[in-house]
Simulated assay, not measured.
Amino acid sequence: MDDISTLTAVIGTNINEVRSQRALTFDQLAKLSGVSKGMLVQIEQGKTNPSIGTLCKIANALGVAVSKFIETSDASTVRLISPDEATQLWTGRNGSAGNLVVGFDNPSLIEFWSWHLVPGEWHDGVAHPVGTREILFVKSGELTLTIGGTTCRAKAGQTITFIADKPHRYANDGAKDVQMLMVVCEPGRGGQGR
């Protein structure tokens, strides 16, 4: 989905649909998500393109995968996803990008991401609900992951797993581009809300 205005409208419609299914008011969702009522109204009306952090907060509050907000149709039994179908939800200052490839929210929340970090760039991830795990596979370069007071470095071919219920940072402190694949798994809340 390349057109930002189309993506913004789809996100607004889908958030409204999930919020309505959960019978939540804007005030209730604002309290659950930490996103202001005014921002929620603007997002649902398609007047603003929310950041990935904002989408994560809303998704966590509603108990759905972020991918639920960018879906345009129901998935079939088998789905082949081409590279141009991934949705870029984050861009860095110097050309880095985070692309949500696909996600599911039943029975568990699972998202599959493709990331590219140029040297010197980073992305700060928000804390996910308790029990959420992430798996990071480094395809090239060297990734620096910081969570709490712990820093871990992974080179090409290595995998990092961690509990993602605290803010965390993915960074490229090296001289070569980092390409990585990420799986986010939040167990046991798929489709249930709070």
Rank of each mutant, 00 (worst) to 15 (best):
D3G: 00
I4S: 03
S5T: 01
L7D: 02
A9G: 08
N16C: 07
A23R: 14
F26E: 01
L29E: 06
L29I: 07
A30V: 09
A30W: 10
K31M: 08
L32M: 08
L40R: 09
Q42D: 12
I43M: 05
I43A: 09
E44D: 08
N49C: 09
N49I: 04
G53E: 13
G53P: 01
K57G: 04
I58M: 04
I58F: 04
A59D: 07
A65G: 06
K68M: 06
F69V: 01
F69R: 01
T72W: 10
T72H: 09
D74I: 08
A75K: 13
S76C: 10
R79E: 15
L80C: 03
S82G: 13
S82M: 07
P83F: 10
D84L: 10
E85D: 13
Q88Y: 08
Q88A: 10
W90S: 12
G92M: 04
A97E: 09
G98A: 15
N99A: 12
V102T: 14
G103T: 01
G103L: 14
D105K: 03
P107M: 13
S108K: 06
L109H: 06
I110Y: 07
E111M: 12
F112S: 02
W113L: 10
S114L: 12
P129Y: 03
V130E: 14
G131S: 10
R133E: 15
I135W: 14
S140E: 14
G141N: 02
E142N: 12
L145W: 01
T150R: 11
C152P: 02
Q158D: 11
T159C: 11
I160F: 00
I163H: 01
P167F: 07
R169Q: 06
D177I: 13
V178C: 00
Q179G: 06
M180V: 00
V183L: 08
V183N: 02
C185A: 09
E186H: 05
E186V: 03
P187R: 09
G191E: 00
Q192R: 15
G193E: 02
